[in-house]
Design a binder for these strands. Structure first.
Lengths: 127, 127
DNA sequence: CGGTATCCATTGCGATACTG
DNA sequence: CAGTATCGCAATGGATACCG
């Protein structure tokens, strides 16, 4: 315990790194990454795969993922404009993590529901 | 036949499950989970461990984590009110995942920065 | 100590309309 | 097809004040 210190007691991540993590774990980002890990898709294909995302949100999400090096945007045709999005090597390194996240959620959702009912019952009695 | 299928079948998670994941992956939730995995902490201790969180956000985060069964809130003293927060078994199942997330970020941040510079340079030239 | 209540600025997001 | 531009509302989040 001697040396060390500095901001070691604080987070393992600095503010910029945490911001990156937020961007990657974003609601739509996770879905897009997971979907593109399956296969490259066109913009509107992606929309259909994720029916609840709006065009605006999808555009924003894709731009940010592209800027962060997680996906690649490839123009494949000029007339009518055709754009393909595919997972980039850096995005591929997240695949196992994303799968694990979805897996954890599916595996533990029922237990969370029970916890919620317990919590809601208790607070209803008191409140 | 379930009347709720529609085009939702391709996603590994339904809407409620994705909402749970969003709550767990929330900016402050991750920090709180990680911190409480170390040891139980009082409310104000937690605030000091996460200096940038406001009281309001910390309260909201803790309530939600408690409701989802991820942390336990234990009142240990009544006179000056004393409350301890500790990781619950369900929250403990997330520890490896949270560590992996922080680990991935730390390991890949430099690469992301390079990607960002590439992206910004390219769009600057065109824009 | 460990919150709640309130106000307020900022942001996010959906809906809509339009373009190369 | 693959976006951009604009508007308006609703939710988030900080600051502050107060309470058991």
């Amino acid at each position: 315990m001697p040396e060390t210190t500095l901001a070691e007691a604080d987070s393992p991540l600095n503010a910029e790194q945490r911001e990156l993590l937020d961007q990657v774990l974003d609601k739509w980002s996770l879905r897009v990454l997971e979907t593109l890990c399956g296969r490259p898709l066109r913009f509107n294909e992606l929309r259909r795969e994720i029916p609840t995302v709006t065009q605006k949100s999808l555009t924003t999400t894709l731009r940010r993922l592209e800027r962060n090096g997680m996906v690649e945007r490839v123009v494949t045709g000029t007339r009518p404009l055709a754009v393909e999005y595919r997972i980039a090597p850096l995005g591929k390194t997240l695949q196992d993590l994303v799968d694990a996240l979805f897996g954890w959620t599916a595996a533990n959702y029922a237990e969370v529901e029970r916890a919620r009912r317990r919590f809601d019952d208790e607070t209803t009695q008191r409140g």
